[in-house]
Structures are given as structure tokens and as C-alpha cells.
């Protein structure tokens, strides 16, 4: 049965799971306007962070006069900075993301989960679906549903330009089932970013197909068709190729300091959230 173009999202379940998690912030400094989220560097929030010796130019209001009275050493209090991080959520809206209903449902649920996680951070979040479409901010997590019409022939990741902002947190969701070089692709995704989270979602039969005999394989994005006898040998060759693709993405993400997680469609959402936490993409709220 063909999947609907916009995957339906069980928001009740999503909210139930997403309430316990939020998007993990990177340790490296992140950009953004002053906000409520503590940054990694020092700033002007009320939360004390550390002491250090006074240096010319320091704000005299931050001098710890009590410490000076005790030690006659001018010491200043350092407070944590407060930032509102920029989040760029890149969604693959090609037809391959709804190759069947199972994949579409899982994709919708995971996109909802990530939208909730982004919303819990009071971040400046935008959604990118295609280079030709202006990135659009979203406020409530439910608004993510309007971006998930999977009708495109290509993923945004295959396009030449992705309008990521500098020093933004980048979250990419795709099946990555298109010809690419993981190092080059991930390098592009991570360039000038603060952090990168890569989520690969595939069907079980896309990750680990089984021998099923002769099939006419029709590419859902119109990239041809192929008559093939899917036997053990073919399955083994396919698995090796898919494994290389997945490991390549994971390795490249690690090199870029990002997180990578491979999600099998149909996995319960709570288990998915735990896997994302394990990958350092989400953290407990």
C-alpha cells in the first residue's frame, strides 16, 4: 500500500517521549543572540561559573570585593553566558522517505521527536527541505508536519547548496540512500557549523534484506528499474555495500565531531530516543 505523501504523526506518543529529552548542546561555543540557554563560555548571566584575577578592562561590577578584603588580590567573578542556539533541521523530503507506510510513519515520528527536542531548547530553529525553498522557522513542534510532504525527486542533501547558518546546530534526517561519498557529504554538512547530528532512518529490508527471489526493483525516485534475482549472494553483496555506506557516514560524522545514529523504521519511539541519547544527539531534560 503506498504511503501518504505527508506521514501522519502520533503527537500524543511523541510528546510523551519527547518530554524527557532535549537536544544536546555542544561543548564548543555556539552562536546566537542572548537568551536563556547557558552557553559554553563566560557571559553575563546570573549563574556563577568561576573566579580569575582582575585584568585591565574587566567590569568593576564583577570584582569580588569580599575576596579582595581577605586576600588583597583583585579577583573578578565569572558568570556563565546565556545564548539562544541556532538550530538548522535538514529534512529529506524525497519520495524515498515514504517508500512504504512503515517508513513514513517512523520518519514522521522521529521528525516530531526532534522538533520537540528543538522546541524545548528555546532555540532559533529553522527547517530546510530544499535549496530552492527558503528555510522556514517553526515555533510549535506540530508545525513540523507541514514540512514533511515527501514528493521531491531528490533529497536536499544531494543538492549543491544547503543554506545552513554559521555556527548553527545542524540536525539532518535522511535515509542517505542515494549515491554519495560520506566524507564529502558530511564535510559539507558540518562546515562552519557548531555541531552536527546525523540521523539515518531505513526500513529493516533496506538495512538487512533477505533473499526473496526474482523482483523487478523500481526506484521510487525514478532512477530506473532492474530485474534481479535476490538470492543469498545478492543479499550478502547488498548488505556489505549498505554497511559500508552506514559506517562511512558514522566515521565521517565522528571526524566532524558530530553524532550519528541509524534508526530502523518500526523501532518504538522511546527506544529511538534512547539511541539518540546514546549517540549524543539528545540529552535528558
Amino acid at each position: 500500500m503506498p504511503a501518504p505523501s505527508t506521514p501522519p504523526i502520533d503527537w500524543q506518543e511523541v510528546h510523551a517521549v519527547a518530554g524527557a529529552f532535549r537536544l544536546a548542546m555542544p561543548r564548543t561555543p555556539i552562536g546566537g543572540r542572548l537568551g536563556e540557554r547557558l552557553g559554553a563560555g563566560t557571559g553575563s548571566s546570573l549563574e556563577f561559573q568561576d573566579y580569575r584575577q582582575y585584568a585591565a578592562g574587566d567590569d568593576l561590577r564583577h570584582v569580588d570585593w569580599s575576596a579582595y578584603a581577605r586576600s588583597e588580590v583583585l579577583t573578578v567573578r565569572l558568570y556563565r553566558e546565556e545564548v539562544a542556539p541556532r538550530i538548522d533541521l535538514a529534512l529529506d523530503v524525497s519520495r524515498s522517505m515514504r517508500v512504504n507506510e512503515k517508513k513514513a510513519l517512523s520518519y514522521g515520528a522521529m521528525a516530531g521527536l526532534l522538533a520537540c527536542a528543538c522546541g524545548s531548547t528555546e532555540a532559533d530553529a529553522r527547517v530546510l527541505t530544499a535549496s530552492a525553498i527558503e528555510p522556514r522557522p517553526f515555533g510549535r513542534p506540530e508545525e513540523i508536519e507541514s514540512f514533511l510532504a515527501c514528493e521531491a525527486a531528490n533529497s536536499i542533501l544531494e543538492e549543491g547548496h544547503i543554506a545552513f547558518r554559521r555556527r548553527s546546530l545542524r540536525v539532518v534526517i535522511s535515509d542517505f540512500l542515494f549515491p554519495h561519498d560520506p566524507d564529502v557529504l558530511v564535510g559539507r554538512l558540518a562546515r562552519d557549523g557548531s555541531s552536527l547530528a546525523i540521523l539515518q532512518i531505513t526500513l529493516p529490508e533496506e538495512a538487512e534484506p533477505v533473499a526473496e527471489g526474482g523482483r523487478r526493483l523500481l526506484d521510487v525516485e525514478g532512477r530506473g528499474e532492474l530485474d534481479l534475482v535476490i538470492d543469498e549472494k545478492a543479499v550478502q553483496e547488498y548488505r556489505e555495500r549498505f554497511s559500508r555506506l552506514r559506517q562511512g557516514l558514522a566515521r565521517a560524522a565522528r571526524r566532524a565531531g558530530g553524532g550519528f545514529s541509524h534508526v530502523i523504521a518500526g523501532t518504538p519511539l522511546r527506544d529511538v530516543a534512547r539511541a539518540l541519547v546514546a549517540a549524543g544527539i539528545l540529552e535528558s531534560a
Binding site: 524515498s96 522517505m97 517508500v99 512504504n100 517508513k103 535515509d175 540512500l177 542515494f178 549515491p179 531505513t202 526500513l203 533496506e206 526474482g214 523482483r215 523487478r216 526493483l217 523500481l218 526506484d219 521510487v220 525516485e221 532512477r223 530506473g224 528499474e225 532492474l226 530485474d227 534481479l228 549472494k233 545478492a234 553483496e237 547488498y238 555495500r241 549498505f242 555506506l245
Partner: peptide, 17 residues
């Protein structure tokens, strides 16, 4: 052969046809 839609045909294409 019964048709089967796939998302990544390129992963199959290098196999023996």
C-alpha cells in the same frame, strides 16, 4: 518478476543482473 519499489536502487545495480 513482481515489482518492488526501492529507495536505493544504486545499491543493487552493481550486483549480477
Amino acid at each position: 518478476f513482481p515489482p518492488r519499489p526501492v529507495a536505493g536502487l544504486f545499491l543493487w545495480q552493481t550486483l549480477r543482473q
